[in-house]
Nucleic acid binder design. Structure first.
Lengths: 132, 132
DNA sequence: CGCAAACCTTACGTTAACGTAAACTGCAAC
DNA sequence: GTTGCAGTTTACGTTAACGTAAGGTTTGCG
């Protein structure tokens, strides 16, 4: 069980982001890599957090909204009050995610129908060449 | 079957946006309301387009990406070449949406687990009051 | 030793997606 | 006829999320 850490460039490769992005997230306290002198070292914890961040972004959450969720993902030894608050925030996000899931389902169905119609229309055109 | 149209303020109420937003989208050619003199009138077409726009935004698409999709939603009498291009764009978006759907599913499951853990931890605290 | 590669900090620049303020118009009601 | 909305144009301001450029440090390698 080695204490594996990644350098900033390895992290960049892993998540397809630039160093600037990682430092920016750090500045915003979304992640907090440990230091080896000046250099940043990213542990499993930061990798996990980055996963949430990239997912969250893909679903249209702002970094600020994501930050709230991250508190939940890595429960430290918080006070009870704080823990309850975190829990509530999480419930809220879950509800939002579920809403989005339904919307997404509907959108996919809609789009599939549209594409079917579109294809029909395309198929009315005479075949021009033997290509495909 | 009346030719129902909405004023800008009615549209704003319907989609919970400001007039500025609607004019902005118009400027970006996402929508194009008809005019009664100076005033904008929004038909069923614009309402449909606005639905796509709001959905798209919730899934983290940029307005530019959304604009491409809108071309597909309202197929005019396009040239075949253009129609095929539109179709391909649509297929791409569909693929993206499906990917997001899978990610979303996974995220929901993850979050549910986290919340369950969080709740367990909360329940270890002694009951303080009779509240709730 | 020299130097290139990888990293760092600091700080100004950029883009998307609107917000906001100022000043004008058309019309319905009083 | 003027008051007052509802709407309009024009244009500068703002925020989030980085990009980018300048200049300094450390570290392995020939």
């Amino acid at each position: 069980m080695a204490a594996e850490t990644l350098t900033i460039s390895e992290m960049c490769a892993l998540f397809e982001v630039t160093p600037r992005t990682l430092r920016f997230y750090e500045d915003k306290e979304l992640i907090s890599p440990i230091r080896d002198g000046q250099r940043r070292l990213y542990t499993k914890r930061e990798i996990g957090r980055m996963r949430w961040i990239t997912h969250g972004k893909r679903f249209g959450f702002s970094l600020e909204e994501i930050r709230e969720l991250l508190d939940l993902y890595y429960l430290g030894d918080q006070q009870e009050t704080q823990l309850r608050r975190t829990y509530d925030v999480g419930r809220g996000h879950l509800a939002t995610l579920k809403e989005k899931r339904e919307e997404l389902k509907a959108s996919i169905t809609d789009l599939e129908e549209l594409l079917a119609q579109c294809k029909q229309k395309i198929d009315t055109y005479p075949v021009q060449a033997a290509a495909e």
